[in-house]
Design a protein around this nucleic acid. Structure first.
Lengths: 201, 201
DNA sequence: TGTACATCAGTGAACGCGCGTTCACTGATGTAC
DNA sequence: TGTACATCAGTGAACGCGCGTTCACTGATGTAC
């Protein structure tokens, strides 16, 4: 078939991108390699030129998803600071919005994979844990605004803020099509309570 | 083979119980009916005498899990009140304990299924949503202790408390074997921050 | 109460299907001279 | 720079396997008289 080395690298990335989308939407177990490679524009046979196994792909997907997620968080914080806006309040506003709730495909991977990662490959679990650690560092750092809290207090607050964002989003997503009104209430009041809590910080 | 009607009902419950355990641990997609019925002590053929499909079983499992979860919450609140202890603080202490974190099999189903339910049967999603609604009612009611908050404020607080419990537990569970120290920190500090928050309430 | 028959929970083999993975093959890309 | 050959990404059929579901059959339970 003949494909340049550069093209092969891009094709590998296409497989990862297609897999990330499908894994986020339907879960790893529900997506077969035939469907997945077809979504990336290939046939299933060539998959093993790029990955040793499906588990290896799962690990690569989680690596990429968590890296992108952390990069986006860093960029959002920098942008808020440049605009003179409180980066954490702005983050909460976005995180607990219905836009983010419906954006399974490219929303924060910490929430999207939170329930699944426990059952995924060891490599995927490691990537996820490292991503969460980075997220906490970023949030703790971003809490170092005009307030006087020390480093240890900021870290505790970061844990609390991330947990609340993840919990509210996961819960709201879990209910959004069986009880959309309650899902909206959870999202809205969870956001307000968290912002109220941050206002007093 | 010949089994009494009473026995048949008990056998159906055995299948549901075995399925709940396996679904909690490994996810619905990863558990086959052959394995599942074998775990309940039967062969796979008889499964369809009890359930129309695997999806119908998933719905029955979620019904039972959420009903039991709500009943346990109600019982815990009553017990705390009888003992003169703050029911919510006690609930948080248990919910965000390492015992509960490691108890996937019979821990709170709201957390255990939070990430999965979105992809399960419509019936399961409905049961889940109703269970969450009941949990919120119970928590809001239990917040009506010695304080003066009105009903609407208590409901907002209930949403915030449940979200934080779910988020902290789900996040800690997601990391517990890739980074147990950070998982412990999340669980501990998440609990302390939530208790601190409740103390001022 | 005893006998004859219908019911239906449970068995275990079988169905078609898609899974993850392997393999012989193709042919443009990349390399050696 | 041009030619001969090796590399290896991608193809598509095939592997064994377990999936959800169906089915003919068994035989104790439950019912009718």
């Amino acid at each position: 078939v003949g494909v340049s080395r550069q093209q092969a690298i891009e094709n590998r990335q296409s497989i990862i991108a297609a897999a990330e989308k499908l894994f986020r939407e339907r879960g790893v177990d529900a997506v077969g390699l035939t469907e997945l490679t077809k979504a990336a524009g290939f046939t299933q046979g060539g998959f093993y030129n790029h990955f040793e196994s499906k588990d290896a792909l799962v690990t690569a997907v989680m690596d990429k998803a968590m890296e992108n997620g952390t990069n986006r968080l860093v960029a959002a914080i920098e942008q808020s600071r440049a605009a003179g806006v409180d980066p954490i309040k702005r983050r909460v506003d976005w995180y607990l919005s219905s836009d983010h709730r419906s954006n399974i495909n490219s929303g924060c991977p910490v929430s999207t994979f939170a329930g699944d990662v426990r059952r995924l490959s060891a490599g995927a679990r490691k990537s996820y844990a490292e991503g969460v650690a980075s997220n906490l560092d970023c949030i703790a750092d971003a809490l170092n605004g005009t307030n006087k809290a020390n480093k240890r207090e900021r870290r505790k607050k970061a844990i609390s803020v991330l947990s609340q964002m993840v919990g509210t989003l996961v819960l709201s997503r879990a209910m959004v099509d069986a009880d959309p009104d309650l899902a909206d209430e959870i999202l809205r009041d969870g956001r307000r309570q968290l912002l109220l809590d941050l206002a007093g910080y």
